[in-house]
């Protein structure tokens, strides 16, 4: 995935779309104040400069799907592991809730279910049937909407073709009105996301940690 920070307006449509797509529960304000809220995606806000000469910067942060993910080696049950496609996967069945992965993650994008999620009826009818509803005691995180990836792969296989670039989008990229989020296959050097990742503006989040994240942030180039 590539994130163009010049385009991001901080509208948080991606956050809302992510909640809706991935059945992410809300925990209420008291628990959120204790840091128990779950947001697979968040928009960080930075003020720069002194009033009245201030600049506002936004940065959407989701799981960086690191190639050398710190969350993976600490998991005692291999719930956090790497797939052949390069996704950093979280298997809820295996997770026993040690929360080591959340501690190891430098990006704070792993979330623990402190409670069984609940929805007032009939709101439970809006849950996405393609995504599990996680119960108490398991970690969860951004999957790059793996349900959409799998659905597109199944469809492509049925039609006996390979996936086209831009054929599928995770919920956040689909919802982004400014198309700041671009999703695609980094293994394909011709894809839009590969082209953007090679951009001289491209930076990785906390690059010095050596996690080799797969999300590229295109830095702002507007007047400084």
């Amino acid at each position: 995935m590539a994130v163009d920070l010049d385009r991001c307006t901080g509208c948080e449509a991606c956050v809302t779309a992510c909640h809706a797509e991935n059945n992410i529960p809300t925990v209420g304000d008291t628990q959120a104040a204790r840091g128990r809220a779950l947001h697979w995606m968040r928009v960080e806000r930075y003020w720069e400069g002194e009033f009245p000469d201030v600049r506002l910067k936004f940065r959407p942060v989701m799981c960086q799907q690191c190639d050398a993910a710190p969350c993976e080696p600490v998991c005692p049950t291999y719930a956090a592991h790497h797939t052949d496609e390069g996704l950093n996967a979280q298997v809820y069945n295996r997770c026993i809730g040690t929360r080591y992965c959340a501690n190891a993650c430098p990006y704070n994008v792993r979330f623990f279910n402190f409670f069984n999620p609940s929805w007032d009826k009939p709101l439970h009818l809006q849950l996405n049937p393609d995504v599990s509803v996680r119960e108490v005691g398991v970690m969860e995180k951004c999957t790059f909407c793996v349900q959409r990836i799998k659905a597109a792969e199944v469809q492509a296989k049925a039609e006996d073709r390979s996936l086209k670039d831009g054929e599928l989008k995770p919920a956040c990229a689909q919802a982004c009105p400014a198309t700041a989020l671009v999703f695609g296959d980094l293994n394909d050097p011709e894809s839009e996301v590969s082209r953007l990742s090679r951009s001289p503006r491209g930076t990785k989040l906390l690059d010095d940690q050596g996690t080799q994240p797969k999300v590229t942030y295109l830095q702002r180039q507007s007047s400084e």
Binding site: N116, P117, S118, W119, D120, K121, L123, H124, L127, V133, R134, E135, V136
Partner: peptide, 9 residues
Amino acid sequence: ATPPTFTTA
């Protein structure tokens, strides 16, 4: 009776 909330509990 049907509970008013849906939960995984």
